[in-house]
Amino acid sequence: MIPNEIAISVQGLKKSYKNIPVLKGVDFKVKTGSIFALLGSNGTGKTTIVKILTTLLKHDSGTAVVNGFDVASKPDSVRQSISLTGQFAAVDEILSGRENLIMIARLRHLKNPRQVADDLLKRFGLTDAANRRVSTYSGGMRRRLDIAMSLVGKSQLIFLDEPTTGLDPEARIEVWKFIKELSDNGTTVFLTTQYLEEAEQLADRIAILQNGRIIVNDTLTELKKLFPPTKVEYIEKQPTLEEIFLAIVGKKEEK
């Protein structure tokens, strides 16, 4: 990869919390414009990596370069070029959806905060709820607003830390759709998740974090090759509960 094509480059990244090592030498690269999924169980350090890359946490050793800027020596330049959607929807509940977006647009020093807000509200299907306080929003709406807030200012690189945790299946599929759209528009997406299906659906490249190291980092096709070749077997395909749920809910909505 030539330098311009690398959005994130991490080498030998180490971090301990009070002598308990969480990251023991993490290495990976993320290609510009791709969707990179970091998989791992709870407590393996996915969020720690996100926090280091978004300048919220200092690492102990190793290097992390984001959009060509070292996170340790050029944190302000890093912040200029990224957006973070944290693990819990970081929205202001007392403000309305529109006010939340306008606030972020003003903090990003954009010229037309209102226009930016209205466009995003429309894109995320929140126009009708725009003037309601966020405390009245459903979990899915909050997450949509949260992601919309991360899109203010059109950062080249977006970090999504477990974006669908706690969402119902419909809301999850909706979020997936937005993530795909983002990537289609050339934004690099760094995603952490504990859902294998999510990585399978979205990611160009999947890395698995375990015991403080990246143990696998490859495309889905290559990962599948790690296992014995496909055999043709005839089995009855049972619908999953998710498919049943979506079919029933979908029918109801059509009525």
Binding site: T54, R79, I104, L107, M149
Partner: peptide, 13 residues
């Protein structure tokens, strides 16, 4: 607690 400060601090402000 709600992560608003984290959002602000990951922004160039």
């Amino acid at each position: 607690q709600k992560g608003i400060f984290e959002r602000f601090h990951s922004m160039p402000i």
